[in-house]
Amino acid sequence: MKVTVIGAGAVGSTAADVIARREVADEVVLLDIKEGIAEGKAMDLMQTSSIEGFDTTIVGSTNDYAKTAKSDVIVVTSGIPRKPGMSREDLIGINAGIVRTVVTAALEVSPKAVILIVSNPMDTMTYLTYQIAQEMGISKKRVLGMGGALDSARFRYRLGEAMNMSTNDVSGMVIGGHGDATMIPLTRLATWNGLPVSRFLKSDDLAEVAAKTKVGGATLTGLLGTSAWYAPGAAICQVVEAILRDEQRIIPSCVYLNGEYGQKDICIGVPVVIGKGGWQKIVNVRLSNEEKAAFEASADAVRKMNEALKGL
């Protein structure tokens, strides 16, 4: 199995590291436009293999897409990261051009690959990739955005923190757009070892958990001065592993909707079954009236962002 990670920044190189250590793939190609960065990081990672005991081969390349040929999964992290005070939406103009270029080049040499979009604003960049894939005759099921996996991890972290319990025992998912104002943590459905967390947390506590989850990325950007990378890298690996090992896992992901959840012609986060070849099917969760309204508002906000693509 072969995975290409485009963008050797903090997120991309961390994803390559986690994928290699977990031996999810036989080969990981790390690609970057900046001379020497991908090669250097690949060499650095390979030098840990004899210490960590993994056998995955990591190759670095400066913009040579020939080395990415016949990849099973292509992860796109390219683009400028968020800085303090920036929203994900602020990145559309620059990152759309970058994503269009790298996705087209990657698919030309790996037409059977699954494309996993991480670049922000993720929902809009996934929609752009869906459009490119359609032009190239590639199934919509091989295009997905990695937002829900990360947001759900941050949700579970906040739930565990509020309950003073291990996050390993907590289940919860986030749907909707991958943005501070558009994501929807489903507190009503969150559980602790199968029991509703609402039995252990007051409504005010759950509201605070949801609020902290929504600004999870912005909180870290404020502390770090740039976007986070450890949890995003691990979340990327989680999705890649589900694809390559055909795990049939339910992971909230940004996918193209055609009537599901009452939405059409949009890429937005919903629970999907992920396995070989990408996402297999969309899982219908019965939302409350309040959750439906929040999802509709989230979709409206994502569509508004998508409008910016028309002038690019």
Rank of each mutant, 00 (worst) to 15 (best):
A210N: 08
A207E: 13
A66N: 06
S119P: 08
V255Y: 02
S253K: 01
E89R: 12
I282P: 05
E161D: 12
G277F: 07
H178R: 06
I132P: 05
D265I: 09
V114L: 01
L220P: 00
G275L: 08
R154T: 09
N164V: 13
L257E: 11
T187Y: 02
K140A: 12
K70M: 00
V24I: 15
P271A: 13
G137P: 02
F54A: 04
L128A: 11
A113H: 07
A294P: 03
K41R: 15
D246N: 15
Y261C: 05
G269A: 14
C267A: 15
E290M: 10
G179Y: 10
R245N: 12
R303T: 02
E307T: 09
Y65E: 03
A235E: 00
A218Q: 12
T182M: 08
F155H: 06
G311R: 11
V270F: 05
D169R: 09
D265Q: 09
R22L: 14
K276E: 15
E23M: 13
A25K: 11
V76G: 09
R82W: 02
E52Q: 13
L195Y: 13
G262T: 09
D300C: 05
T187K: 10
G97R: 15
V103W: 00
S152Y: 09
A228H: 04
K83Y: 04
A42H: 06
K67Q: 11
T56C: 12
L45D: 01
I266C: 01
A210M: 04
E247D: 09
N168M: 14
G147D: 01
K310G: 14
K140Y: 10
S198Q: 08
R22P: 00
L287M: 14
P252Y: 10
N289K: 14
M305T: 10
R22Q: 13
E307V: 08
A16R: 01
P111Y: 14
A210W: 05
G277E: 03
G259I: 13
L189N: 03
G259K: 11
E247P: 01
S152Q: 12
S166P: 10
R245V: 08
D55M: 11
G160E: 10
R303C: 02
I33L: 11
K202I: 05
V102S: 06
R245H: 11
M46R: 14
I98F: 04
V11T: 07
K140S: 14
V109M: 00
A106I: 09
M136W: 07
N164E: 13
Y65Q: 01
V143P: 03
T56L: 07
G85D: 02
P185Y: 12
Q47K: 12
S288M: 01
S49T: 14
V255N: 01
D32Q: 06
L206G: 00
I74H: 06
T221W: 03
I6T: 02
